[in-house]
Design a binder for these strands. Structure first.
Lengths: 354, 354
DNA sequence: TGTTAGCACTCCATTACAATGAGTGCTAAT
DNA sequence: ATTAGCACTCATTGTAATGGAGTGCTAACA
């Protein structure tokens, strides 16, 4: 199964060439392209072997060869090892991003959107970024405030500084004293409690103590329930979906339509995020080639993902989606650098507002 | 310029036929398709006239005719008049939506997204919905709360119940008394004030009165400023962008790429929203045919928009984007009905949380 | 034994060309 | 005013013919 040096060089040459042109590459091209000084005939013999081993494919008799998923895989794995050292020196593009993250506007949403956009512009592939998934689940703070005679405002803060607001309409104005009582009731009973542990027993106890204001307690609990629901939902920002039209192998109606839908719906993308977050490889960078992708609509694409981590263990995913013949070198390098920037820089963040 | 009855009928027949097939339609087809009982030769003469008048176009000598923008325009205008009466009886699809709006989940965002999705599924065109633009600008309520020793939570409520939260980190814990003072300071000075009227004079007065806590005031004011900025941003939800692939005239790479980008970026769509909201026709329904659209990337599309209105004069836009040969009849009818449902049903809304 | 030159063969892509057919414009007859 | 008939146009389709890129195989060579 092991390839000797020469075979590996030839395979590499085939892949490099194919990445550029997108056309099957023949023996003659390789003969000139490499510094091996071998005739096309020799190359042909080697290619024949490589095909038998499953690293390259011949679309039809008498055409050049293209890399198989297995071939790409070898290429990528090899590269992942080599590139390890020269990580430090950041490319121009990444510096740009770094600058942007540093002078971040308050809203993380805007930053992530911008980042997706820039990545897409720089790489010419489609990109996606998932917002860090909030892990904290303990209630930190609950407050009822009177906004006007008929309306109360619920403010709920969960560990990790996720904030939820909710308006409650009341029949008649509650005086300050009642409001204070309710606030104390809520905070003494719920503060520090993991949301999952709020059960019916607790709720009915609260309601009982609230007396005629049980209805308000019920509405507050509804709002708390919403926090859970929203927490399960991963926000995903995408950009550069139009880039798929730059690669003929993805641009036919059938495929393009499927891909565009995937990007628009985002449902499927969140599966990709889940997969990436669970299946860790150590480097934090994962490469899915063709059918390796967990999302079927992307079986003709390659996906490179990086997980980044903010403080408190909140993790998010950055993904780049392009054709199989993606510039893995550039993409992986960019993601690696960006990831390391994010991992360190963002750690000084004091949470995010919602 | 006026067309006689027969010419109008022929034009209508041409358009109807073209809407279905997407192919240029010939004289023979019309001769059989209509109940006019005219030979193809007669139709040919009439078609020749219609072409001279600019209502139809011949893609090349010896092909059938297709409608011009002017032709579509006549057709649509005519239809808008006719369809006025039979508005009341809602179609199945719209009933479905009505049901959904009624049992609305708390978050308007989810409802609008769902609505865009359903519309797209029902019409087979791309859709967009803009969230109602918030008009209210008076500060209703400001509060600082202590979440933990180092963190304060700012809660700002603006007229129309737009809510903004912001976390503030403090060096050392503020006691209850100071907090109460700051809250009173903020509310007595700012409550009921239009955001635009908060000027430097007011701010420095506040800071002065806050003494050593001027820094906190500054952060609160930053948060207020953000409310303004966010208010200017119109949220737009889209769905069914992939539907453009169902229409060959839009599905070629160049056009598809442009359209997809338009949908993804949303920047251009907001121009469309602005145009729709300002230029009122009375019915609340507008039809842009081909080059009439304010968005250049949509010059090969037709766009039908409806403005809906919630209480407090908050207006939003629903748009359907498809090929020139759109089923105007169905689309306009659907939008009209949906609009009237929204206008009435949603009026009972008590605002929305953010 | 590994490498190379040479040759026959395959298959795709391009081009050229004729046939088809839908559709028109025009004219003469009704 | 309407229609039948005819010549003409032009996109589309099908069918060869051609060229070229590339392979596999064999025989010669170092």
């Amino acid at each position: 199964m092991d390839l000797d040096e020469r075979k590996r060089k030839i395979l590499q040459a085939i892949i490099r060439n194919y990445l550029e042109t997108g056309e099957p590459v023949g023996s003659r091209t390789i003969s000139k392209y490499t510094d091996l000084n071998l005739s096309s005939a020799t190359i042909r013999n080697e290619m024949s072997d490589l095909e038998e081993l499953g690293y390259i494919i011949q679309p039809h008799t008498s055409s050049g060869r293209i890399p198989s998923d297995k071939g790409y895989r070898l290429y990528v794995d090899q590269m992942m090892l080599e590139k390890e050292e020269q990580l430090s020196q950041a490319t121009q593009e990444v510096r740009e991003m770094q600058r942007m993250v540093l002078e971040r506007e308050d809203k993380m949403e805007a930053v992530l959107k911008q980042m997706a956009k820039m990545l897409a512009a720089n790489t010419n592939y489609a990109t996606m970024i998932s917002a860090p998934q909030v892990r904290g689940n303990k209630l930190k703070f609950i407050q009822l405030s009177r906004v006007d005679a008929r309306q109360l405002l619920t403010t709920i803060v969960v560990e990790g500084n996720v904030i939820k607001n909710n308006m409650i309409s009341v029949e008649q104005m509650l005086d300050d004293e009642v409001l204070l009582k309710l606030n104390i009731l809520l905070n003494t009973n719920l503060n520090g409690l993991p949301i999952e542990e709020i059960n019916l027993a607790i709720i009915s106890k609260l309601k009982q103590q609230a007396g005629i204001h049980a209805g308000i307690i019920a509405e507050v609990m509804d709002a708390v329930a919403e926090v859970i629901k929203e927490g399960e939902h991963v926000e995903i920002y995408t950009s550069g979906a139009n880039n798929i039209f730059k690669y003929p192998e993805l641009a036919d109606n059938q495929r393009a339509s499927e891909l565009i839908t995937t990007f628009e719906e985002k449902q499927l993308l969140s599966e990709l995020v889940q997969d990436t977050l669970t299946d860790e490889t150590g480097t934090g960078i994962q490469v899915y080639i063709g059918n390796e992708t967990p999302v079927k609509t992307m079986k003709d694409c390659s996906v490179v993902t990086a997980t980044y981590e903010l403080e408190e263990g909140m993790k998010g995913t950055i993904g780049i989606i392009g054709p199989r013949r993606m510039d893995y070198d550039k993409v992986i390098h960019t993601l690696k650098t960006l990831k390391s920037q994010l991992d360190t820089i963002y750690k000084k963040d004091d949470g995010h507002s919602g």
